[in-house]
Amino acid sequence: MIIEISSSGGFGGIPAAAMHKRIDVDQQAPSLRQEICDAFEPRDLRQLAARSGNSRGADRMVYRITVTDRQDGPHVYDIREDQLPAEILDLIDQM
């Protein structure tokens, strides 16, 4: 499974300042692999993406998370950063 994460928006709104990460989950240590699989569960991501419409607040970044596995190809989720649980954001920072 491959996870790609890119960001857009934020205070600067500068595309060049965005984050781009690509993680080959199969190459990770077993403990981290399990943590990542739990965090990027497609059903949860779908729900989080559905909740990422307009709301109060400003200057937040939006993450585009693309999960690709061998069986059924890429799934793309656009999720505003405040909709992602803090643990997932910490995991993204760590990856």
Partner: peptide, 8 residues
């Protein structure tokens, strides 16, 4: 983290 925000 390359950002600052107001979350409401």
């Amino acid at each position: 983290y390359n950002n600052a925000f107001w979350n409401g």
